[in-house]
Design a protein around this nucleic acid. Structure first.
Length: 477
RNA sequence: GGUCCCAUCGUCUAGUGGCCUAGGACAUCGGCCUCUCACGCCGAAAACACGGGUUCGAAUCCCGUUGGGAUCACCA
């Protein structure tokens, strides 16, 4: 395991799992699975201001739902913990102290107000806003004076001269000028680490071999490379995935509707479909069948295959994939995910075997789990009523003849099954001389009360002999 | 504004110099199937952002332009 692949997903607990982050998590998971590696979940909760106490569990729940389970994580899993940054302050402090003693970092006493002012001045002059290094050469006397005045210092990294090379699996070799960075904060005045520092310390100490994350982190990477070098850590491989954008090409933000995994879950999407769609987006699994199982995704996944351009999120294709997964799924498995959507129809004694039959009958008529309940009333003994169109159809003499004929045929049978449906139809045709629409429309009207819905050969066996006869009798009145 | 990233049908993509009169999928449109809505099947329309090079030959390589995006915090 020494040289094994180790990857991590490091969300910050500020809300539900974002669909774009889910894709990042998925790529990490697929990469780990592909290379028989370890997938670590780390919680980046160093920003108290944005922290949502319920978010961590919400994110874990979303990840579990998607099947993106982790090998090491904050609930005590793994030997590289703790996996919550808020529980690692001592570790950051030690490494920061070490850096400071080596001269790689220095205390900065500038206040937020002074910093903001500096920014504005630079901006006004048309220059790039960055820390100009005011406190870099502070003498200990000056520092003491500032300290005495009540200022709490932050710790800044002393960015060296020169240029930094970032090698990225997806984007190739990139060179950044160090002077464009400015000395950035690594430990805040409140004692908590800043992102770049915490991420580097954690990734190094947790033995992360491949940092797979969003492209928004690419400009951060040279800072982190510098930190790795200053701290004497070995560099991991980097892979920066292009971001997801909204259908109109803009940033995928809340303004564009559902952006959280939870929202799609609540709309009735299957985790398999969401994950499948995410794997398809941005390449990485290109070529061949688009509806994939986990095995297929793992087999086809490669970081090198990921497209370099941002991908637009297309809800339409997600729906198509959802339908595809629904079609091939067994009723038993659908029930597992459909339960929350069926709440209104589930009673104490609801027979689950019956429910599974219903799901098998309707699964090809729906795109999402949320649509299933549209068709449930058809099968409910007491949920039945005729709509206007059905009522009209049942006024014709031919229609009533068809209904009567079916009633007699079914009455003479022990049971109605999918297998003997063809026999029933043959007998019906013989007795009534009707066929096609003339024959089936009245039966559909009498039995389901509505003119759209699953195929009759699927409906009848689920209804069962008794209900069929009751409904037909009712239609004849 | 500086820096960085990106650019094939409406969308996701295949394509790594000749196999491209650019392939597939979703969506769209038409047809077939059919007891309805669907499913399924068949077919149509639909793209290499632009301009320069390099080359016998460029969607593929280079440069520029344009357009989109990211980032420049004591956020992550």
């Amino acid at each position: 395991m020494k040289n094994g692949v180790r990857v991590r997903f490091a969300p910050s607990p500020t809300g539900f799992l974002h669909i774009g982050n889910a894709r990042i998590a998925l790529c990490n998971k697929l990469f780990a699975l592909k290379h028989d590696g370890v997938y670590v979940l780390r919680i980046e909760d160093t920003d108290v201001a944005r922290l949502d106490p319920a978010a961590e569990e919400a994110i874990r729940e979303d990840l579990r739902w998607l099947g993106l389970t982790w090998d090491e994580g904050p609930a005590g899993e793994g030997a590289h913990g703790p996996y919550r940054q808020s529980e690692r302050t001592k570790i950051y402090y030690e490494h920061a102290e070490r850096l400071k003693e080596q001269g790689g970092a220095y205390l900065c006493y500038c206040t937020p107000e002074e910093l903001a002012q500096m920014r504005e001045q630079l901006l006004a002059r048309g220059q790039t806003p960055r820390y100009v290094g005011t406190c870099r050469g502070l003498s200990s006397a000056q520092a003491q004076e500032l300290e005495a005045s009540g200022r709490k210092p932050s710790l800044r990294f002393a960015v060296p001269e020169g240029a930094t090379v970032v090698r990225d699996i997806i984007h190739g070799k990139k060179v950044f000028e160090n002077k464009s960075m400015g000395d950035f904060v690594i430990m805040r005045s409140d004692g908590r680490p800043a992102y770049n520092f915490a991420a580097v310390v954690d990734d190094a100490l947790m033995g992360i071999t491949h940092v797979i994350r969003g492209e928004d982190h690419l400009p951060n990477t040279p800072r982190q490379v510098l930190l790795y070098e200053a701290l004497g850590f070995t560099l991991p491989d980097f892979a920066h995935l292009p971001l997801l954008v909204a259908p109109d090409g803009e940033r995928l933000s809340k303004r564009y509707g559902a952006v959280s995994v939870r929202a799609y879950r609540e709309e009735g999407f299957l985790p398999q479909a969401v994950v499948n769609y995410l794997a398809l987006l941005g390449g990485g699994t290109a070529g061949g069948e688009e509806i994939m199982s986990w095995e297929g995704m793992v087999r086809r996944f490669s970081l090198e295959g990921i497209a370099r351009s941002p991908a637009a999120f297309d809800p339409g294709k997600l729906r198509w994939l959802n339908r595809g997964h629904l079609h091939t799924m067994r009723g038993e498995d659908i029930l597992f995910y459909a339960r929350p959507f069926l709440a209104g129809f589930l009673r104490e004694g609801t027979d689950e075997g019956w429910l599974v039959k219903v799901l098998n009958a309707v699964k090809e008529n729906v795109e999402t789990l949320a649509e299933i309940n549209r068709y449930i009333p058809i099968f409910l003994p007491d949920g039945f009523s005729l709509d206007a169109e059905a009522r009209t159809i049942l006024t014709a003499d031919d229609a009533l003849a068809a209904v009567k004929a079916l009633k007699e045929i079914v009455a003479g049978m022990a049971e109605v099954t999918e297998d003997n449906f063809t026999e029933i139809v043959a007998a019906l045709k013989k007795h009534t001389g009707l066929k096609g629409k003339q024959l089936f429309a009245p039966l559909r009207a009498a039995l389901t009360g509505t003119m759209t819905g699953p195929e009759l050969h699927k409906v009848l066996p689920v209804l069962g002999k008794q209900i069929i006869i009751e409904r037909l009798a009712q239609a004849l009145k």
